[in-house]
Amino acid sequence: MKALESVLVEKGLVDSAALDAIVDYYENRVGPRNGARVVARAWTDPDYRARLMNDATAAIAELDFNGRQGEHMVAVENGPRVHNLVVCTLCSCYPWPVLGLPPVWYKSAPYRSRAVIDPRGVLAEFGTVLPDDTEIRVWDSTAEVRYLVIPERPAGTGNLTEDELAALVSRDSMIGTTLI
């Protein structure tokens, strides 16, 4: 691996400082806090929620979240009888601008193989148990469209500010493996 980097840098195919900047970007500039801000805004601003459900790419760009692996965004809402779960069975497609880079388990064979055939079993491994009459909608990211789950706003949070609400929103709840 070091040999590869040395060759690419020496040949002028990549710039070493650019690699540092890319690592910094994905370690510090994108991550699930971005998605949590989108969710909290949708919970508190009905007009924003409407724009998000109509054109998520544009609504997310309003908050300055853009870029690679978020070119075509769709937001999917959980409700009392509907739960959404996102997977990429063929590789590891994931909405980087709002969730950052995917966790290891999301990219792993056990998750990719079973999310589509046994979503309730997969959810149980995250401690998430849903009523039998809740429809689970699994989204297999087979194209360049990326899906963001909008979890249900927890009860008893009517007094919280948008920032306080954002702090409640976990990464896994926006993939759909957990509830809030």
Binding site: T89, A109, P110, R112, S113, R114, V116, I117, E125, F126
Partner: peptide, 9 residues
């Protein structure tokens, strides 16, 4: 997609 036996998450 749909395979079994690839281990726990």
């Amino acid at each position: 997609g749909g395979m079994h036996g690839l281990g726990p998450i």
